[in-house]
């Protein structure tokens, strides 16, 4: 049911739907296009991008994904991490 497993290398889609019109997105800007590693699946939740507009919201897999801080901001301390909840449709295999 879930496409990714713990340890899988993933990339957050470099996608900017907010440029096209009104949206509700739970994927932070600073992670778009960045590579991380799946820590674990967090279950399935109704897609907030639909819920926010009162549309039918199918449940979709959510993952905890780890990113190296210095891969995004080189000044941050090597070894430090971000751990962020990302929905499956925002992830692609890296």
């Amino acid at each position: 049911m879930s496409r990714f497993a713990p340890g899988d290398a993933v990339r957050v889609r470099d996608s900017w739907p907010e440029a096209e019109g009104p949206v509700h997105i739970r994927t932070p800007h600073y992670l778009r296009g960045r590579e991380g590693v799946v820590l674990r699946p967090l279950g399935q939740f109704p897609n907030p991008e639909d819920l926010a507009f009162g549309r039918p919201a199918p449940s979709i897999p959510l993952y905890h994904v780890r990113f190296a801080q210095d891969s995004i901001w080189p000044e941050n301390q090597p070894g430090d991490e971000f751990l962020v909840e990302i929905y499956e449709h925002w992830l692609e295999a890296a």
């Binding site: 739970r26 971000f82 751990l83």
Partner: peptide, 12 residues
């Protein structure tokens, strides 16, 4: 000690 920043973006 490593620092892990948990960005609470979604359903937890």
């Amino acid at each position: 000690t490593r620092l892990r920043v948990v960005d609470s973006t979604a359903d937890y």
